[in-house]
Design a protein around this nucleic acid. Structure first.
Lengths: 191, 191
DNA sequence: CTGCAAAAGCAAGCGAGTTTGCTTTAAGGT
DNA sequence: ACCTTAAAGCAAACTCGCTTGCTTTTGCAG
C-alpha cells in the first residue's frame, strides 16, 4: 500500500525545499548527504526513495516548475498570452527558476519521452487557443507560441543572456504581428 | 612553456573522444576514471589538466560544437542563413550533437559569463550581417536570428521534440518574412 | 645530438558518497 | 483503540573517486 500523506509528504517537501535552497545559493553539486542534512532527514531515506541525485533533481524540478505561471483567462488571446508570458518571464528572472530549468534540461535523458512539464503546458495553451478560436479570433498554433515566445526566453536563460523585463510581452506582440502578416506561420510542421 | 603539440594533443583528443563516445552510449554520469580508461590515459593526467569532470565536459562540448556548422558566404543573406541553419539542424539531428548541447547547458554555471560558443557564433553572424548590409540588403539583428532560428531549434532538441528535416530552413524563411513585414522586429532590446 | 622542463604515468592513502541489515516510528485501515 | 506495514532512522562497512609525492617519458629549443 502506498502512503502519500503525513510524514512521507513532509519528508518529500522538506527534501524538495532543501534542493531548491541549495541550488539557489550556488551549491549546484551538493550531494545527497548534504541535501538530507539541510532537510533534516536521514540520507538513507533519500537514497531509498529517489535512488540518485539526478532522480531527485528531476523530481524537484518538475514538481516546482509545474506550479509556476498558469495561463489566465482574460477574455482575449492577447491578454491570456501576455499574462502567461509575464509569469514565465518572472519565473525565469528568479535564480531558482533558472537553476531548476537548467537541472531539468541536464537530467532529461535523450531517449526519454517529452517532459511532462512541457506537455501539460502545451495542453493548457491549446485550451487557451480553443477558447480564442471559439470567440472568432485568429489563433496561432501551440508550436508557434513555443517558437516565438518560450524558446527565446529559454535560450536567454540557459545561455546566460539576462532576461530583461518586458521581453515576454514583446515576444508575444511579435507573434501576434507575425500572425496578422501570415495567418499560418508554422504551417506544415504539425502541432 | 606551453606544449600544445605531440603527446599532449593526442591525449586531449583521446579524452574528448572518450567523453563524446560515453555520452553517446548513455553513460552520462561516467566519472573521470572511466573516461580516462576509455581514452587509454591515466586518470591523474585528466585530473591535472582539467581539474574536474565539469570542466572536462565543458571543454569537450565547446571544442566539438565550435567545429560544426560554419556560416557560408553565398552572396545573399538568405543563402548564408539557410546554409548555416541547415548545418545547425544537421548537428542537432546527430545524437552526439544533442548530448553535447545538453551537457553544455548542464555544465554552465548560472553566474558565469556567456558561453564562448554562443559569443563566437554571434560574432560570425554579425560579420555575415555586415556583409549583407554592405550589399544593400535589409538585415535583421543577431538577436533576431537567435530568437527566430536558433532558439526554436534548441528548444526542440533539449525538450525532445524531434527536429524534422527542413525545420531550420523554414525558420529562416519565417525570419525573413517577419523582416519584410517589420524592418526592426527586435528593436528596443539591444543586439 | 643533448639538455631542460612540461606533461604523462604510477602507486599509495584519504575521505566522501553509497549501500545494507536491522530497528523504530507512524499512516491508515479494521 | 489496536494492528499491520510502509516508510524513516540508525550504524557500520564498503566502494570508488580524488589527491599527492614521486618517477618516467617526450616535446621542443639550443
Amino acid at each position: 500500500m502506498t502512503r502519500p500523506g503525513g510524514r512521507s509528504a513532509r519528508v518529500r517537501d522538506a527534501v524538495h525545499d532543501a534542493v531548491v535552497e541549495l541550488l539557489a545559493i550556488g551549491e549546484i553539486n551538493a550531494a545527497i548527504p548534504k541535501i538530507a542534512e539541510r532537510a533534516g532527514v536521514n540520507p538513507t531515506s533519500v537514497y531509498r526513495r529517489w535512488g540518485s541525485r539526478e532522480q531527485l533533481l528531476l523530481d524537484a524540478a518538475v514538481t516546482r516548475l509545474r506550479a509556476t505561471s498558469p495561463i489566465p483567462d482574460t477574455g482575449t488571446l492577447r491578454g491570456d498570452l501576455l499574462g502567461w508570458a509575464e509569469g514565465v518571464e518572472r519565473a525565469m528572472c528568479d535564480p531558482r527558476g533558472q537553476i531548476l530549468l537548467r537541472a531539468l534540461v541536464a537530467t532529461l535523458a535523450p531517449d526519454k519521452q517529452p517532459i511532462e512539464y512541457l506537455r501539460a503546458r502545451g495542453e493548457d495553451l491549446q485550451a487557451t487557443l480553443d477558447r480564442a478560436a471559439a470567440r472568432g479570433e485568429d489563433v496561432p498554433t501551440v508550436d508557434d507560441i513555443l517558437d516565438f515566445v518560450l524558446a527565446p526566453l529559454y535560450l536567454r536563460v540557459l545561455f546566460r543572456r539576462p532576461v530583461e523585463p518586458g521581453t515576454g510581452g514583446k515576444l508575444v506582440e511579435r507573434l501576434l504581428t507575425a500572425l496578422r502578416a501570415d495567418p499560418a506561420p508554422n504551417a506544415g510542421r504539425g502541432g
